[in-house]
């Protein structure tokens, strides 16, 4: 994978992700995490190699909420449905629009923003905007959800809260999820496997022993960060990152 200037962004990446799995990619800035995610989304073409996806719909949550400021919350959430509906090849009827609105309302309710559906982005807090961005990604019921450091700009409390929300939604809908993050704790809390990337290569892929400890009906009360395994696994990832940087 190369940047337009010919500079290599990622090289010799070999990664297989199972359906319904949640994989996190961690690594230092500029190591190629976002490029890899953009290739998975089909937003960037490969200079060599191939990317095979057995999915129908892919959604992307950007680092910034990237909401359209001239559309209300419900308008923003309906956007992917409107864009996808062009495949229908006939003008949308009133019934179609009602159906889109219902689906958007359901997605907004899932992120607990039902009361703010008619508000505009400038009227919302940073956390609420990110919730809208998540609802917009989920409204199409994607098979593959890609998240590019979605909580990076939020404070720690909000980050944990939204992390729990995404986990809950993932458990409900069982889409495949790939998360790019700088935050190791976030990666451990959310994913089944963690890829450690360095200088455009995947250095190692680690199975996450911590998520398996979670009770089947786990809620926010159960916090992985309080377990001993969490600290141990955190240390392992940090060592791998440090080791890769020193090589």
């Amino acid at each position: 994978m190369e940047f337009p200037g010919g500079q290599r962004a990622a090289d010799s990446v070999d990664l297989k992700i199972q359906q319904g799995e949640c994989v996190s990619i961690v690594g230092r800035s500029g190591c190629g995490k976002t490029t890899l995610l953009r290739v998975l989304a089909g937003l960037q073409t490969l200079s060599s190699g191939r990317c095979v996806r057995h999915t129908e719909t892919t959604s992307f949550v950007f680092q910034q909420p990237a909401l359209l400021p001239w559309r209300s919350v419900v308008g923003n959430v309906m956007l992917p449905l409107e864009l996808l509906s062009r495949r229908r090849r006939r003008p949308a009827t009133r019934k179609d629009l009602r159906s889109l609105r219902q689906r958007a309302d359901a997605a907004i309710d899932e992120v607990e923003l039902g009361d703010a559906a008619d508000q505009f982005p400038y009227e919302l807090s940073g956390g609420m905007r990110m919730r809208v961005s998540i609802a917009r990604a989920l409204v199409t019921r994607p098979d593959l959800l890609l998240l590019d450091e979605p909580f990076a700009a939020l404070d720690d409390m909000l980050r944990t809260q939204l992390g729990s929300l995404v986990t809950e939604l993932w458990r409900t809908h069982r889409f495949t999820m790939v998360l790019v993050t700088h935050n190791i704790a976030e990666a451990i809390a959310l994913s089944d496997r963690i890829c450690v990337m360095h200088a455009g290569r995947i250095e190692t892929v680690l199975d996450n022993p911590v998520t398996r400890l979670a009770p089947p009906q786990s809620t926010e009360q159960w916090d992985v960060r309080r377990t001993a395994e969490f600290g141990e696994f955190y240390g392992t990832i940090t060592d791998r990152l440090r080791g890769a940087a020193q090589r």
Partner: peptide
């Protein structure tokens, strides 16, 4: 913005949709 353009590209927006909606 790049993210907005990416969003439209991701959902296969037509040129007309991109023009009128973005």
């Amino acid at each position: 913005r790049v993210e907005h353009r990416d969003l439209f590209h991701l959902y296969g927006a037509s040129r007309l949709q991109t023009l009128t909606r973005l």
